[in-house]
Design a protein around this nucleic acid. Structure first.
Length: 768
DNA sequence: CGACCGACTTAGTATCCCTCTA
DNA sequence: TAGAGGGATACTAAGTCGGTCG
């Protein structure tokens, strides 16, 4: 079905070029472009189990987008009056931009001394005797204050931010205290009385957002951690589990056996049927074999891994069948490792580490048509590991008998551990959890940048519209690309090395074959059809009417080009971002995605929320607003394998409820009649009881129906990504406060931790 | 410039594990 | 009291973007 989007399957002769207009990309063109997309689409479709629906979905999506865009149009004009522009500005300045003049006099040593764990450890009353309590922090800071040498005075910082915090609070205080605030205060009070526990919780609730940020480009002053957790060593298979080559049992040497188990574990996956996967695997596997093994094993098709595969299946089955105690033991062990390795101390605070486990060896699973799928991802040893921590911290120890590759002390970066991965040769990192200060500050900053864009987006839009008329090709291309990025929330689209990764594109790397122009389509004029694979090989398919000028420009860009030529041959992300930087400080292509996502959420919430709706109905509205953003950003997911079934189950429930309801109504009617006849107290009570029952069932039914709608609409749209990465959490928090909806209904525990800053600071009148 | 690298964000999916139901 | 269902979490791939170097 996906063949209908008109991409030629014809092989294109390499090196054949169109116009001279794109000569500086000759090198790129020289390479042979394989028309794989067709195949890939099919694959994706298969993956998504939605062969028949895909087009429908695309069309629906398209419609949704149109709708969305319409409402967006109002923002295009940007009619908002900016009543609180000034207020906003003040806030922003205070919180982010103008951080007080920290001098450059600060000295690492001194600061570090203050934060040294030794000092922390000496605190006797501290719960765990190791990590500082906030109370303690203050004390340390005050001590620090006596040290005249440092401008970087924690106490001063503290005082300043306290003032600021107060001021900020005052700004909001003209609002009446809403339920949410009351609730918050209450819970806080309650916690304060909980003694020891409260202390711990306070530490978790450290409000970094009320503190100063570093302005010198450093990310921390003190960093101490325990290093990574390595993958468990390979455990050879029991002798009874055999590998067969050409029907004959064969014992493999440990390294070859290990790699074979990787393949065996994936036997059920369709990956293992793919040629590239098999080829890559086989090649890397052979590297692990002894010379005898190499001489015997010459054909992967003669290898039989089934017994190994069965063994692993049995193992995982056995794991499921373990007794409670055994499971509990494992859980405790995991918890212990988490406690030991899952946290670090950064600048006086215990912070959660994101992924402290080193990626175990295995077969590389790229996404989409990845040329390297099946390659062996090798085991990482301590000798591959670079540790980053502060000089005076207790350095993590490598496992006995091993050494780290390097220990460095670079406080200009945020990572704790890094290593180079062998598939792409890229660097992998261990960094902090999203709830950490270092991630949170960055996140907050991201949304502030997007809000600054809001203020000048009109200007930028009118500028790129002007640029459509430019005499210079490069400027026209830039302007059209920017229009797409703005209107369609496309990604920037860096160039990628061909043959190293799956063939995917973003805006600047779009090729001629990815768009089709229709001067007229149905009722609409100047329609552009996009069809390409974006990040993670997710298909982007969309038909949109564009302005005449854009259309004419596109026609011009397409002149004399081959399908595999770049649409924007005079443009790349670097040029585009340099231009954007000139338009607004800190502006890059991806800011448009953040901006458009957040502004869309805000508008949609305004539009969709009915004041008289029940809470579940309001939440449905929220999810729909969220969904509008996910559609805009093309965040898709494979429909859950159990989707149809779970939908059916829900429908059954609804049917049952409906029966219940009509039964309850009948009973109510009967009760009423009864009451009419007798007029006694007892029958009156009965009526009341029945009425309440009907009401309750009605509510339950409503809830179920809402749930069904929500789920259906969510079938292949993933809300998580936009929620986590594109939507200013303050919009959601404000919405919750405005409609007295508990934030828990919108954000789960992890999300609340990540967005603690927003939950704490956003009031119901927050405007993105 | 443009290739390359390093650091960091964004992304979908596999797996875990908790809760609700039968 | 299992076990189905589904949300939460873990995992790691794949982007963006700025800086450096030749």
């Amino acid at each position: 079905m996906s063949g209908d989007h008109g991409r030629g399957d014809s092989q294109v002769n390499s090196g054949s070029k169109g116009s001279e207009s794109h000569k500086h990309k000759d090198k790129h063109k020289e390479k042979e472009h394989k028309h794989k997309n067709h195949k890939k689409d099919k694959e994706r479709e298969k993956l998504k189990h939605c062969n028949s629906e895909h087009k429908e979905y695309s069309e629906k999506k398209h419609k949704d987008k149109q709708k969305l865009r319409h409402s967006d149009g109002s923002s295009d004009k940007h009619r908002e009056k900016h009543k609180d522009k000034d207020k906003e500005k003040r806030k922003e300045d205070k919180s982010l931009s103008s951080h007080s003049n920290r001098t450059k006099k600060e000295k690492e040593n001194g600061y570090v001394r203050e934060r040294s764990p030794a000092a922390i450890k000496s605190e006797p009353e501290d719960d765990n005797g190791f990590y500082p309590s906030p109370k303690h922090n203050k004390a340390t800071k005050r001590e620090m204050d006596d040290d005249e040498e440092f401008e970087y005075k924690p106490k001063k910082v503290k005082v300043e931010h306290d003032k600021k915090a107060k001021k900020r609070k005052h700004e909001y205080e003209d609002d009446e205290e809403d339920e949410y605030t009351k609730h918050k205060k209450k819970t806080k009070d309650k916690k304060a009385t909980e003694g020891k526990k409260a202390k711990k919780e306070d530490e978790e609730k450290w409000k970094w957002w009320e503190e100063e940020r570093y302005t010198d480009g450093s990310k921390w002053r003190f960093l101490e951690h325990k290093g990574p957790v390595f993958a468990p060593p390979y455990e050879p298979l029991p002798d009874k589990v055999k590998f067969y080559y050409d029907r004959k049992a064969m014992k493999l040497c440990a390294p070859a056996e290990e790699v074979a188990t990787f393949f065996a574990k994936m036997l059920d996956h369709e990956y293992t049927t793919k040629d590239i996967f098999r080829k890559n695997f086989y090649k890397d596997w052979r590297k692990e074999m002894t010379s005898e093994e190499k001489s015997v094993i010459t054909d992967l098709n003669k290898c039989d891994f089934r017994e190994m595969s069965e063994y692993f299946k049995a193992q995982s089955e056995a794991r499921k069948q373990m007794s409670k105690e055994e499971k509990q033991k494992i859980k405790e062990e995991n918890e212990r490792i988490l406690q030991e390795y899952g946290f670090c101390i950064m600048d006086n605070h215990k912070e959660r580490i994101g992924n402290f486990r080193i990626e175990p060896p295995g077969l590389f699973r790229g996404r989409g048509d990845h040329p390297k799928m099946g390659m062996l991802k090798r085991r990482i040893r301590p000798e591959d590991i670079i540790i980053n921590c502060s000089k005076d911290s207790k350095q993590p120890k490598p496992p006995p008998g091993t050494k780290w590759k390097e220990v460095r002390h670079d406080n200009k970066v945020t990572w704790l551990v890094s290593w180079t991965e062998n598939i792409q040769g890229s660097i992998k990192y261990i960094m902090l959890n999203p709830s950490s200060r270092i991630k949170g500050e960055k996140d907050w900053q991201k949304y502030e940048t997007a809000r600054r864009l809001k203020k000048c987006v009109d200007r930028i839009r009118s500028q790129y519209r002007d640029d459509w008329k430019s005499k210079e090709m490069r400027i026209r291309q830039r302007a059209v690309a920017l229009y797409f990025i703005d209107k369609l929330a496309l990604r920037a689209g860096n160039e990628k090395e061909e043959g190293e990764t799956a063939d995917t594109v973003g805006c600047c790397s779009l090729r001629v074959e990815h768009i089709k122009l229709y001067p007229k389509m149905d009722e609409q004029e100047y329609v552009v059809e996009f069809d390409f694979l974006g990040k993670d090989s997710i298909r982007y398919y969309n038909k949109i009417p564009v302005e005449k000028r854009v259309f004419k420009n596109l026609q011009l860009f397409l002149e004399n080009k081959q399908p595999e030529d770049d649409l924007f041959d005079r443009l790349n992300t670097s040029i585009l971002n340099k231009h954007l930087q000139e338009l607004m400080d800190g502006l890059t292509a991806k800011v448009f995605r953040t901006y458009n996502a957040s502004i869309t959420l805000q508008q949609q919430l305004k539009e969709l929320t009915c004041p008289e709706d029940s809470i579940p109905a309001k939440i449905l509205s929220y999810n729909r607003a969220n969904r509008a953003v996910a559609i805009l950003c093309n965040h898709q997911r494979a429909p859950p394998k159990t989707f149809e079934k779970s939908m059916q189950n829900l429908q059954t429930k609804i049917d049952e409820k409906q029966k219940q309801l009509s039964a309850a109504r009948k009973q109510l009617k009967a009760a009423k009649a009864d009451h009419k006849a007798s007029h006694d107290e007892k029958s009156k009570k009965a009526v009341d009881v029945k009425r309440k029952a009907v009401q309750r069932i009605e509510e339950q039914l409503m809830k179920l129906q809402v749930q069904a709608t929500d789920r259906e609409e969510n079938k292949q749209i993933a809300l998580g990504t936009s929620k986590l990465n594109y939507l200013d959490p303050r919009i959601s928090v404000a919405w919750c406060k405005k409609w007295a909806i508990p934030v828990e209904k919108i954000y789960n525990k992890t999300q609340r931790e990540k967005f603690a800053w927003a939950i704490d600071m956003a009031e119901k009148d927050y405007e993105f």
